[in-house]
């Protein structure tokens, strides 16, 4: 019955890099007050690259799976690269997201963009 790709179900049930860093360099928080979804991204940076990352949050499977997957996607990449990161990269890594829920999937990416500006 699932319109949710296996990737989404997998990350929803087994979130990666969930928790907090003891001393993050960058932090971005994004919430959707309408549905209560919330994602917090914490980054440790070394040599202009993501050395470590954690996410925390609550909400729907799509937003939380996307946050978990995003932590894997950005690990080890340069901040310069991440500033250029397109929505499509996350959406296609999620295996596609249905139209009505794009906003949920992109919530963690907005948190990342906030972190990069922080």
């Amino acid at each position: 019955m699932s319109p949710y790709e296996e990737v989404i179900l997998d990350h929803w049930k087994n979130p990666r890099n969930k928790g907090r860093l003891s001393d993050p360099d960058l932090v971005g928080v994004e919430v959707n007050p309408l549905c209560g979804d919330a994602v917090r991204l914490e980054l440790k940076v070394a040599d202009g690259k993501v050395a470590d990352v954690r996410f925390d949050g609550h909400g729907c499977a799509i937003s939380q799976a996307a946050a978990s997957l995003l932590t894997e996607l950005i690990q080890g990449r340069t901040l310069a690269e991440l500033r250029e990161m397109k929505d499509e990269e996350l959406l296609s890594a999620l295996g596609g997201v249905i139209q009505t829920r794009l906003n949920c999937a992109l919530l963690p990416l907005r948190a990342l963009r906030k972190a990069l500006k922080s």
């Binding site: 019955m1 319109p3 949710y4 309408l34 549905c35 249905i98 949920c104």
Partner: peptide, 22 residues
């Protein structure tokens, strides 16, 4: 433990329209 939007999206795949939100 599940978000209402996930429940509504999955039900919609079966043709069932319910409301989810506040």
């Amino acid at each position: 433990g599940l978000h209402p939007h996930d429940v509504a999206t999955l039900l919609d795949q079966e043709g069932i329209c319910i409301r989810a939100g506040h």
